[in-house]
Design a protein around this nucleic acid. Sequence first.
DNA 1: CGCCTACTGTTCGGGTCCGAACGGTAAGGT
DNA 2: ACCTTACCGTTCGGACCCGAACAGTAGGCG
Lengths: 174, 174
Amino acid sequence: MSARPPHQPHLGDLIGAERDIVARLAEVDLDVDYDALAVVSNIFRVAAMARRRIEQVALAPERLSWTAFTTLWVLWIWGEMESRHLAAEANVTKGTLTGVLDTLEGRGLITRRRRTSDRRLVMVALTDEGAEVIARVFPNVNATEVEVAGHLSSRQRRAMAGGLRAMVRGLAES
Amino acid sequence: MSARPPHQPHLGDLIGAERDIVARLAEVDLDVDYDALAVVSNIFRVAAMARRRIEQVALAPERLSWTAFTTLWVLWIWGEMESRHLAAEANVTKGTLTGVLDTLEGRGLITRRRRTSDRRLVMVALTDEGAEVIARVFPNVNATEVEVAGHLSSRQRRAMAGGLRAMVRGLAES
DNA sequence: CGCCTACTGTTCGGGTCCGAACGGTAAGGT
DNA sequence: ACCTTACCGTTCGGACCCGAACAGTAGGCG
């Protein structure tokens, strides 16, 4: 391992880089599933890149993070809802959601209201200003999503959509 | 918008939830590309879920985050390398990498060495203990990746791999 | 040499992000 | 009423994560 000669990876040449990784891992005596490795690691890569792109292009003018946008968007679509459902829809833990809601509440974009019938529950809703912000920013976000997904053919886009749904289902129920 | 009747989303029912979203957005007078929206948002969803799964199952015993694991893994594959290249491979900004390397250095898993020929550059390498950790944890991570990708048929897996590569290329060069 | 430009890693402020621990609330049983 | 159990949102500590600002280094170029 320490006697390995220096080697520069092929940045930007994904296929070449992946081939090099296979060669490197072949030196180690391990059974590696390269297809699973490539799919999962490229999902992380695409997610991080797309998130940065959307935040820079569409969200930076409104000073919103991707998670803050998602939270507002869910409330925009579904209307006032319980905090725990909001966390599930936005795909964050309840602890994280508390912090995000603190930020959004401080900026006057959402309100929290404790239920009287069950005082454990907190109802979250958009303010008028919050509704204005999400209505203004959503078209720009969707346009950036179109640009990101535009690197796929329509066949690829359908296949990706189906595969991703299968993975969401599989991950959710196991 | 505020006069909208209360409505519960289809938690766990992805297709049904997406249908409801289409119905909700139809009320607003907007041109929305639902395919792009579904692909991009499901990429984020799968990425977050898979990341949590891998961290809980394979990384928690070693107290490693996904990013810390990725950093060690890159160094394991390529050997000692410049900090800027490491950041590009791990897909984080240089500012983030500084913090991650601080953590890993404090735990004795990597070393930093400033180059004498060009004192701007910092070379990063695994320690012996870092190499032991990554060699021990990588098989478990790959096994979890296999489980995550196992929710796809082999056809779907190939299609996903191709689509993701196309998106990485497209995002990188624009 | 002195200046200017470019580049590298670090620092900084603000915002997520998680799991675990915590305090408050509800509901069923006794 | 009391107790036990289960559940909800918040708090906490620690770790990422980003862009912007910064200090240090290198390499021209007159």
